[in-house]
């Protein structure tokens, strides 16, 4: 029990250092009128970097992938990575005091890894085992860390301070990231494929944001914050006053 946890935390501190440094830099950034986005100046700069990278590299690759790979193969790739994330989902369901969900997540993992051939097919969903999207950022929110300042990271995308910390914990319990212990090349290839897969699945959303938003940065930010709130409350958030 102790050893995985120790390695988990040493892993965090190693990876977190540059981020902590960046956070310190940000406190110098301008104060703003949005209470959820005190580092707006920094975030907008990072958003611009992200958009630049996306336009030049990530999006074109995702577009080629989306056009060239037939749907069943794309679904297989998506399912493969989703299956691995069920490890994270099970762990966090448990940490949030939902043993029933955790048991169902473990069943999903077992069913999909075997009958679903290494997770390529999501047989569990067909059997009625619903997927629960849980991560450590949500777990911390359930534990009481509700409001957190918004952050935008290039390539990683929108997060909050809480969710950035959560993400660092998640990648330490994520078998995809864990392959680094065997081969960095394999890990990086897997992460690259996953990034392209996720980006390809977001292609239809591009047009919506492009057309709907008066200010794309703010639209993405507020959508992220709303979506997280919905996830924290497992799809049934209490109403906010108008």
């Amino acid at each position: 029990m102790t050893r995985p946890f120790r390695s988990l935390f040493s892993g965090i501190s190693r990876r977190a250092l540059p981020l902590v440094g960046a956070c310190l830099l940000m406190t110098a950034a301008q104060a703003n009128d949005n209470p959820h986005d005190p580092y707006e100046g920094f975030n907008r700069a990072m958003y611009a970097v992200h958009e630049g990278l996306d336009k030049v590299i990530v999006k074109p690759v995702a577009q080629v992938y989306d056009a060239a790979v037939p749907l069943p193969a794309k679904a297989g790739v998506g399912n493969f990575f989703d299956n691995i994330l069920d490890v994270r989902n099970a762990l966090n369901s448990l940490l949030q005091g939902k043993p029933g969900d955790a048991a169902s997540d473990v069943s999903r993992l077992l069913v999909n890894s075997t009958i679903g051939i290494f997770g390529l097919f999501d047989v569990a969903s067909e059997l009625g085992l619903e997927r629960h999207e849980e991560d450590f950022g949500q777990t911390m929110a359930v534990w009481g860390y509700r409001d957190s300042a918004y952050l935008f990271w290039p390539l990683i995308g929108p997060r909050t301070v809480r969710d950035t910390g959560g993400w660092l914990v998640d990648i330490n319990t994520d078998p995809t990231w864990g392959t680094t212990r065997k081969s960095v090349a394999v890990r990086n290839s897997l992460l690259a494929v996953r990034l392209v897969d996720v980006r390809a699945s977001l292609l239809p959303a591009d047009k919506v944001v492009e057309e709907a938003a008066l200010d794309k940065y703010a639209y993405v930010r507020d959508a992220y914050l709303q979506r997280r709130r919905n996830q924290i409350y497992d799809g049934r958030p209490p109403r906010l006053d108008d």
Partner: peptide, 8 residues
């Protein structure tokens, strides 16, 4: 997906 197209 939890995002209100209006309050956003």
């Amino acid at each position: 997906a939890g995002i209100s197209l209006v309050t956003n």
